[in-house]
Each structure stands twice: as structure tokens, then as C-alpha cells.
Amino acid sequence: MPDLHARVTALRAHISETYRLHRRVIRNHRSNVLRQNDDSAAVANEVRGRAEPEKLTAQSYSPATDSLLAWQTQLWGHLLDEGLESRRTDYALALAVLAFRLGGLSADYLDALR
């Protein structure tokens, strides 16, 4: 896991640097606006502060999905190479069954492959 730790550390450093630069741009913009306007007291150019974080939805990694997409790509390449484009509907039915089985347990997908 040292690789993961190094990546998390690098990500944190990147976020920190991005936040620092963002705040610097805001400060610079604010000082320029206040300097350019004589009636700067009337200008409402303030930093609002932090906002409530929003939940992120992460896509989970699925080796089963990757294997199905790889099979589909290889199959279509094989059909094109062999001049069997007309048979793709036969394989589309198998692809549909396998894709349907992806939504369940991985064992269900493996059983469908067998």
C-alpha cells in the first residue's frame, strides 16, 4: 500500500496548492477592483467562505464489465477480419445475455460465460 499512500499524499498536496492559488487569485481580483473604483465601499466583492460539501458518486471498478467489453471488441474485429459481419446479430444475442448478467453477482456472469 505504499503506492496508495504516495498517491493520496500527492493528491492532498495538489488540492492544497490549487486552493492556495484560487484564494490568491480572489485576493488579487478584489484588490484590483477596490483600487480601480473610487466608491469601493459600495462594491460587494467579498469571499463567501466555505460551502457545504456535496456527495460524490464513485463508479466502482468492474473487471467483469471490462472483460465483456474486451470480448465484444475482439469479436467484432474477428467478424470483420473473416468477412462475417452478417453474423453479428447471432453474437448480439449472446452479448445481451452476458450484459444482463453483469447487473447481478459476478458468479452469475461467470456461470453465463460457461
Rank of each mutant, 00 (worst) to 15 (best):
L84C: 14
E46V: 05
H22W: 13
L98K: 08
R12E: 07
R23Y: 01
Q74C: 04
R24S: 11
L69A: 08
S62M: 07
R87T: 12
H29W: 15
S106M: 10
S16Y: 04
H22T: 00
L34N: 04
I15H: 11
N37C: 05
L102N: 03
T65P: 02
R12Q: 09
W71P: 04
A13I: 03
R48Y: 02
P53Y: 14
S62A: 10
G103M: 04
L56R: 11
E52R: 15
G104Y: 05
G104C: 02
T65R: 15
A92I: 14
L102E: 03
L21P: 06
L75S: 04
D108G: 09
D39N: 13
L93D: 15
L79A: 09
G77F: 01
P53A: 08
H78N: 01
A58C: 06
R7G: 03
L68S: 02
P63L: 03
H5W: 07
L79R: 02
A58H: 09
L93F: 14
D66P: 09
I26F: 15
D90W: 13
A94R: 15
D111E: 09
W71S: 08
R101L: 05
V43P: 03
S67F: 05
F100Q: 11
Q74R: 05
L80A: 05
R24L: 07
N28S: 10
Y91L: 12
T18S: 10
